[in-house]
């Protein structure tokens, strides 16, 4: 890689492997993931439940729960190694450089603290602001995320707000220290559809306003179509496809991506027709098949898929679209 290229990388993850300790020994849940986020870029991370999306992001911040640990791999943020930096430095990165928005706004706010205080906390402890300054900034942040009457709202407790409001507060907390990167872990899963669209619009607007990079984790391909620049599709802890968003929708390569796209209901479908789905479930950690992890569910599976693990190979001339599939490779060679 040229140095110019590495410099525009904000987040660069190489070969990240995460294991869960079980009674039968360590089970791999994230298997050598490579991914990167450029400055100002919005990356969508897509996959079914349990394929390691959240664990990947939590492991970057060293927030993994007990018994789950990073076995190998490197993660660099803005040129610094996240896995080896001291706890002190890491705390600065967590609060200042990387903002995190969690999945469930109902349980991710401290129930006994007023939301104004929760917003002010990182500003006071990490930015050294006075209480008064932090309070003014909290009001400003709530206004930024579209909460009306923010002067009064900072006095509210989380249980006095609706789910959508709480997620706005979560986003405001994530933005409090003006991060370079906002990681949103399925921020709309717990919300109803109209609120989902509002939150997506909100983040889109904020990204442009604040010039930050965003990683949006989701299992909903349709939701992020208008939001992200590039999509990484995860399956069973591996990257199976990586492409610019338009390219991915127009020309999905990996059978898993195709399956995901096919399972989005369309208006043109016949009324009352069955929804498409991908048969089977992702492999449990510790019971990963030999070869390609998707092979047992794959309509195109060949013999080689059950014995060898496909590598992520570029399939477009520019190299920006990559997929890990023997069937795709074979089709390209035949063409």
């Amino acid at each position: 890689m040229m140095s110019a290229k590495t410099e525009k990388r904000l987040l660069d993850v190489k070969g990240l492997t995460v294991e869960i300790e079980t009674r039968r020994g360590p089970a791999v849940v994230v298997d050598g993931i490579d991914l990167h986020v450029d400055k100002g870029e919005t990356l969508g991370v897509v996959g079914e439940s349990g394929c390691g999306k959240s664990l990947t992001m939590l492991s970057l911040m060293r927030l993994l729960p007990n018994k789950i640990r990073v076995a190998k791999g490197k993660a660099r943020f803005d040129g610094r190694d996240l896995q080896t930096m001291s706890n002190r430095e890491l705390r600065k990165v967590r609060g200042g450089d990387i903002g995190f928005v969690f999945q469930d706004p109902m349980t991710s706010l401290n129930p006994v603290m007023r939301i104004g205080d929760q917003l002010a906390e990182p500003l006071i402890y990490l930015r050294g602001m006075s209480r008064k300054q932090a309070r003014a900034r909290a009001v400003e942040l709530l206004r930024l995320v579209g909460i009306p009457g923010s002067e009064e709202r900072i006095q509210a407790y989380p249980h006095e707000l609706s789910g959508g409001m709480r997620q706005r507060v979560m986003i405001a907390i994530g933005l409090a220290c003006e991060p370079k990167l906002l990681i949103a872990d399925e921020p709309t899963t717990a919300l109803d559809v109209t609120i989902q669209a509002q939150i997506v619009d909100l983040v889109k607007g904020l990204r442009e306003k604040l010039g930050m990079s965003v990683v949006w984790i989701t299992h909903d391909l349709a939701l992020i179509a208008g939001l992200v620049d590039r999509v990484v599709v995860l399956y069973a802890g591996t990257v199976v496809e990586d492409a610019p968003v338009d390219e991915l929708y127009a020309n999905p390569q990996h059978p898993y991506t195709r399956g995901l796209l096919a399972s989005i209901p369309k208006l043109s479908d016949a009324p009352a027709s069955r929804l498409n789905s991908i048969g089977g479930t992702p492999p449990e950690p510790g019971r990963r098949p030999e070869g390609c992890p998707f092979a047992p569910r794959c309509p195109l599976a060949m013999d080689i898929c059950r014995t060898h693990v496909p590598k992520l190979e570029p399939i477009s001339a520019a190299g920006s679209h990559r997929a890990a599939c023997f069937a795709v490779e074979k089709a390209r060679e035949a063409a």
């Binding site: 927030l63 705390r91 609060g95 349980t107 906390e121 990182p122 990490l126 907390i173």
Partner: peptide, 21 residues
């Protein structure tokens, strides 16, 4: 609980998380 992870993700120290959360 998730709000503890959320507080950790904010970079708050263990002491503050213990006392305030």
């Amino acid at each position: 609980r998730p709000y503890i992870t959320a507080a950790q993700a904010l970079g708050l120290s263990n002491r503050i998380i213990l006392m305030r959360y």
